[in-house]
Structures are given as structure tokens and as C-alpha cells.
């Protein structure tokens, strides 16, 4: 169970350019943080830094759980659900195969992840354990049940985004990093993701989202 993510005086440089410096914030379980700022302000870079892809030029990130403090980037990555610019889908795989792959990849029976997602009872989060029927129930939740056997190459941009959301649900990660979560989604899709985010926070998850639109979660926001 993750309690909080704390950033202490983070700095990010790209080439010779300084994107941000001395950035500190703290997000606790059940909270969402919207990262706002103009194009090129470093929103995506901050998310990539939290995910451990980028190494901070200065400062550090601390992930606190009930038992321990995690400062190692690779270790932190095992708590993260990632929704990036790209949806991470293969045109050759069907929707169900794609989701099945994510579910199995993230649930290694040999390596139970240290920081489990908050217990969600009958939620789709348990889908990956059983597979089959539960995958379909996750697809139903994101409105893709009828496309289950369709190769991903035939999905529209919005449908691809929905499948990427389904990946978040099966990955059972407590810390969601969302880069422009509303991009390419229609009104119904935006309502869907808002509902998923509320639910995730309600179960004690943490969300950090780079966005131009308000998250509508009564959340804090961080201007870059």
C-alpha cells in the first residue's frame, strides 16, 4: 500500500536547457495532482522522471509505503501504471490478446509486486488473476467488449485510448502517471476516464496527470 510520493527539489535539464529547478511537491494516497504548463514546459519530462526513464539533474523522489521508503527509480517503476503519448498497442494483436499480454506481463507469479494496488473487491483489478471472463469485464467497462476479437489496427484513436485505459485497470498499479489522458477521447470517453480516476483515488490510489483540461477531481495542481 503506497502512502505518498514526495518530490524534493527536482531539477530537469534537456541538453543545455533547464526545464525546471527546485520543484517540490507531495501527493498522498487518494489524491490526484494535475501538472499544468505551456507546451515544452516539461510536463512530459516530469512524468518520465517519476517513471524513472529520466534521471533528475538534482533532487530526489521518495515513494513511501507503510513498510518502507523507495528511492530507487527501478523499484519505483514497479508501482507505476503508465499512460503515455503513445498507446503502446500492436496492430497485429487483437484487443483481447493485447490486454491479456499486459495482464500477464504485469502479474508475474514469481515476482509479486511489492506495492499492490489498493484492494478493490470485485473491481476489474483482479481480472489478470483469472484471465478470460474478467478480461471481458474490463473491456466492457471501457466500452470495447464488442471489439474483443478485432485486431488493434482497426481501432479508432479513441478506441485505442480506451484500450490503453483498460491496461491501467489490469496492471493493478497504485500510482498512475497519465500524459494528456483526455486526448483523442470523445465526451463519453472523457466521462469514462473521469469516473475511473475518481474510483482509483477512492480506493487509495495516486494520480499524477499532465493535462491542459481540469481533472475535475477537486485535485491540487502544479504549474510548470
Amino acid at each position: 500500500m503506497i502512502l505518498s510520493l514526495t518530490a524534493e527539489r527536482l531539477a530537469c535539464t534537456r541538453g543545455d536547457r533547464k526545464l525546471f529547478d527546485g520543484l517540490s511537491f507531495r501527493v498522498s494516497a487518494g489524491q490526484a495532482l494535475a501538472v499544468e504548463g505551456a507546451n515544452g514546459a516539461g510536463k512530459t519530462s516530469l512524468l518520465r522522471m517519476i517513471a524513472g526513464f529520466l534521471v533528475p539533474a538534482a533532487g530526489r523522489l521518495v515513494l513511501k509505503s507503510a513498510q518502507t521508503e523507495i528511492t530507487d527509480a527501478e523499484e519505483r517503476g514497479k508501482s507505476i501504471g503508465w499512460l503515455g503519448h503513445h498507446d503502446g498497442l500492436k496492430p497485429q494483436l487483437t484487443v483481447r490478446e493485447q490486454l491479456d499480454f499486459f495482464a500477464r506481463l504485469y502479474r508475474d507469479p514469481l515476482r509479486p509486486s511489492l506495492a499492490q494496488a489498493p484492494a478493490t473487491g470485485t473491481s476489474p483489478a483482479s481480472a489478470s488473476r483469472a484471465g478470460g471472463a474478467d478480461l471481458i469485464s474490463v473491456l466492457e467497462r471501457v466500452g470495447l467488449a464488442r471489439q474483443a476479437e478485432l485486431p488493434c489496427r482497426y481501432l479508432s484513436a479513441g478506441q485505442r485510448r480506451r484500450l490503453a485505459l483498460a491496461r491501467l485497470l489490469v496492471s493493478e498499479r497504485p500510482l498512475w502517471l497519465l500524459d494528456e489522458p483526455f486526448a483523442a477521447l470523445d465526451v463519453a470517453g472523457q466521462a469514462l476516464i473521469a469516473q475511473l480516476m475518481v474510483r482509483h483515488c477512492g480506493h487509495g490510489g495516486i494520480i499524477i496527470a499532465a493535462t491542459h483540461d481540469p481533472l475535475g477531481l477537486g485535485n491540487e495542481s502544479l504549474k510548470l
Binding site: W82, G84, D87, L89
Partner: peptide, 14 residues
């Protein structure tokens, strides 16, 4: 290119 590598990098697999 399609972003799968990021998702795979965050999986339990080193």
C-alpha cells in the same frame, strides 16, 4: 515507436 517499450520497462521484468 508505439510506446510498448515504456509499458514493458515498467513491468516486473528487468
Amino acid at each position: 515507436e508505439d510506446g510498448s517499450l515504456e509499458v514493458i520497462a515498467l513491468s516486473p521484468l528487468a
